[in-house]
Amino acid sequence: MSTTETLAAGATRLRAAFEARSGDDACALVTYLMAGYPTLEDSLRHIRTAAASGADVIEIGIPHSDPIADGPLIQEAANVALGNGFELPQLIDALRQEPLTVPYVLMSYINPLLAYGCDEFMADLQATGCCGLIVPDLPLEEALPWAEAARGRGLALVHLVAPTSTDARLRAVMTAGDGFVYAVSVAGITGTRATLPDRIDSYLRRIKTFGDLPVAVGFGISTPTQVAALRPLADGVVVGSRLIRAVRDQENLAEVVADLAAATKGNIP
């Protein structure tokens, strides 16, 4: 692979995954599942199920002992995964041995990555065929060395924005970001909510005025109705806690994901 191809790979594949769905009022479905929950083998099987059931991009959550941006469902899943002996290097090995064909990103808090080592982590992540990473406690001010290390390995460091973000911060993310932008739907933490936040439409439109990176919206989105409502407003919709609940309660994950995927085209079951 030439250097330019390496540099472009992850970010380009992510962009393409969103752009492929942007016609006909559809949007991409991003599914969050936690590695190691309840075991590493189970979680890898769930990830493949989601990919086969209509997920366009997969987000693989890395369990952490202190997930300050997460609600009770993801906290509890992380506890279970860590209690069952989850170790990040084992996930990396598994992904390297059996690569996923669907574009995917890892979502991890910063401390497990610091412990792994920035350069070593990026090298190993690249070897898995992963497209990039999302780090919820790494704001712009701290992100530069990580973004550069990721880019050097053809990986996208995906930035988050929030309803509280100033115009200056939105502009910085939309112009400097890679792959896509993760728009946190509310000033809050992850977890299912009954309704979409007020003013979500004007918030998502405001982000789009600062650049043309794909915008995926997440936090609190759990039902096909919510997904269908967001479809004209965002390039992608992230569903997380709802799927963790499906795994916890041994629901039919393929059906849950398929219903959400249908909703990205406006079809509500």
């Binding site: 910063i110 509280t164 973000s165």
Partner: peptide, 12 residues
Amino acid sequence: GGRFVPETLTVA
């Protein structure tokens, strides 16, 4: 030191 927090908190 520094500020390793979710984006939502940075403006606050």
